[in-house]
């Protein structure tokens, strides 16, 4: 059970949050220009990294804000939390 430091509310129990999976997969601006492979890449393919993953979390039972987390999926250690729209940190 992590403690997640919501950038808007502070440190809260993990059970207040919902994970939104890998971050920085922007929805294509022109989906119709993509072929099926490219669209599938956006829709389904994931790095599923063992190690530091940049991912999205939502404070669903709190402020309901989305934000980004850099977490090591091999030990669940949260390295960095940063807001939506910010660039991933160099770790």
């Amino acid at each position: 059970m992590f403690l997640i430091n919501c950038p808007y509310c502070g440190e809260r129990d993990q059970s207040e949050f919902v994970s939104g999976g890998e971050a920085h997969i922007a929805r294509p601006k022109q989906p119709t220009e993509l072929n099926d492979d490219q669209w599938a890449e956006y829709l389904f393919m994931r790095k599923n990294i063992k190690g530091i993953q940049f991912e999205r979390w939502n404070h669903a039972h709190g402020c309901r804000k989305w934000f980004n987390v850099a977490r090591d999926t091999s030990n669940d250690k949260i390295e960095k939390i940063y807001k939506m729209g910010e660039q991933p940190p160099k770790l």
Binding site: M45, R46, K47, N48, I49, K50
Partner: peptide, 18 residues
Amino acid sequence: GHSSVIANMAGLKLPLES
């Protein structure tokens, strides 16, 4: 659970989450 880890070694991405 480690399928993606192996896939990444071959330069593949899979539609998986572990």
